[in-house]
Design a protein around this nucleic acid. Structure first.
Lengths: 144, 144
DNA sequence: CGCAGTCGTAACAACGAAGGTTGCAACAAG
DNA sequence: CTTGTTGCAACCTTCGTTGTTACGACTGCG
């Protein structure tokens, strides 16, 4: 599976903004977050843009601009972040339609679809159990 | 997430071989399976090769060669197939190490690692609940 | 022994997703 | 007006997956 770090980076950015705000700052810049995540500011802006569309963060422009949380970390779950940054389903069907004249080719897609939906539902349930507040607490609990 | 159809195709192939054997045939060829899945025989051989390494199928060479199940479909779960064909973890960490001088950069990876491990464990548990026998039953239950 | 059918596998192209980079317009505070 | 930042488009690179061709290895059969 093409391992995808979008959820990780998004959680990193949210935790960073949350901590920075608790230290008394109004907004965080994509530059600062990019430095912490060791990546490019544009990558962060792209990702935060998706989180903004999902209502998790807000951005200000102009001088002294930057990003702030739109909600408390405790009210944001990894599921919110996952849905904001991951478009497609976890498992895909065949890229080309299987042979509909074959019994297996005909029945396999509805069968797998049903199974996959159940599994994704469970995954969502698990993601919803973890808030970004939990993530930040875990981050700060790391031994130095 | 780069949607991945490997698990789907592998389940398709196993169900096909299983059904074919129940119809009295000894072995199935990659050509036949590829026709049903509407793909290339080499793709099927590659995938079945991984399933062979995992002990799920066997292959014979020479004239009248082909593939057969190494176990009953009822004793194979989607987890067995998943582990045979999906190498990496579901979610990835940062591609480059985050800033270790930053509190968040330092603590984020262990924190997310722990969370992801729990989620993958749940995913495995769900996959282990479905046998290939279940899949084949669902496939044959499709209305025509 | 030779033929034919099939697997085993390497090599390469095609494709798409994701990340990285550059450039620049839009915006707003001072 | 200047400055710092977002918003966004365009493009490249990298990587994983799939598709395709080619060919050697193997084995049952005549």
């Amino acid at each position: 599976m093409s391992a995808n770090s979008r959820l990780t980076i998004a959680a990193h950015a949210l935790a960073w903004i949350g901590l920075y705000q608790r230290q008394g700052h109004e907004v965080a810049t994509s530059e600062q977050i990019a430095t912490s995540a060791n990546t490019n500011p544009v990558v962060i802006r792209r990702l935060l843009g998706e989180l903004r569309r999902a209502g998790l963060v807000e951005s200000r422009r102009g001088v002294g601009a930057g990003w702030s949380l739109a909600r408390e970390l405790g009210s944001m779950t990894l599921l919110d972040v996952y849905e904001a940054v991951e478009p497609g389903p976890l498992f895909a069907m065949h890229r080309t339609t299987p042979d509909q004249g074959c019994v297996v080719g005909y029945g396999i897609q509805p069968a797998m679809q049903r199974i996959y939906e159940g599994i994704e539902q469970t995954l969502r349930h698990e993601l919803a159990r973890v808030t970004l507040e939990d993530v930040l607490r875990d981050v700060l609990a790391a031994p130095r």
